[in-house]
Design a protein around this nucleic acid. Sequence first.
DNA 1: AATACTGTACGTGTACAGCATACAGTTTTT
DNA 2: AAAAACTGTATGCTGTACACGTACAGTATT
Lengths: 138, 138
Amino acid sequence: MLYTYSIHMAQHPVIRINLDSDVPAQRQIVDNVRVLLVEGTLRPGDSLPSVRRLAMELGVHFNTVAQAYRELAAEGWIDLKHGRGAEVVERAPTPPSREQIADFRLQLRQMVARMRAQGLSTARIAAELHAIEEDITQ
Amino acid sequence: MLYTYSIHMAQHPVIRINLDSDVPAQRQIVDNVRVLLVEGTLRPGDSLPSVRRLAMELGVHFNTVAQAYRELAAEGWIDLKHGRGAEVVERAPTPPSREQIADFRLQLRQMVARMRAQGLSTARIAAELHAIEEDITQ
DNA sequence: AATACTGTACGTGTACAGCATACAGTTTTT
DNA sequence: AAAAACTGTATGCTGTACACGTACAGTATT
């Protein structure tokens, strides 16, 4: 839990990043906010914290947050308006491609391999997969 | 399939990397070989292709492969001997930590969010999760 | 008009990926 | 034994991305 920072967004949601991780802060911010967007915790019309406010609470420079926001804007999730903050917008659905399924399958195998290499049992991993599977099907 | 390179390892297994990906070639090599190691396609006693041979077939510099091999050696998978190639060795089991389960869970959620953002349906994603789950439990 | 907030655009230092090149150890060939 | 052909290793260079500092530009409030 050390070196883990969090912030409440829009009064409710929370994102956390780990400054010790080898994963860049920018990517952690993008990945975490994207989860909130996909899972519906952040919805169109909601406003995101300002780059300076989020940066202060996460312990990074505001330009780091700004770049993460630009990434999310490029993906079509949010709208950045100069001087007026960032707001979640309706996002046009993306047509899936065949490669993505193969990519997803490979990335899953790689993640499972990484976890098994770290000592997690296959039973434990299967349980986590099952839990996520149930989460998204309801 | 463009820009995807592959190589046969030890007569049978195959690894592929995508030079267009933003994921570094080093990491792709490590991740792909780790999958083969965890899934038992590569076993203790097997020898890996030389850094120059694998590099040529993947289309990268041999030092890139060498660094990937060093990473795998650091993880305890292979033994690098000067002048005599790389060999898979028996690996001591790693004791799992509590944080890893939380990390795994978060990474899974992030991966699912990324795939949903790319247009994959929750049904399709759930099917992939289920398939992997069954693969590792047998 | 002034102030305090918003996001943007530059430059700087650092870390890492990828490559070129030279080196060192081992095996095979001559 | 010498030479050649393989093996992995070490060092330096270049390009790119991350994180930060600082100055700028747009908007809302005072």
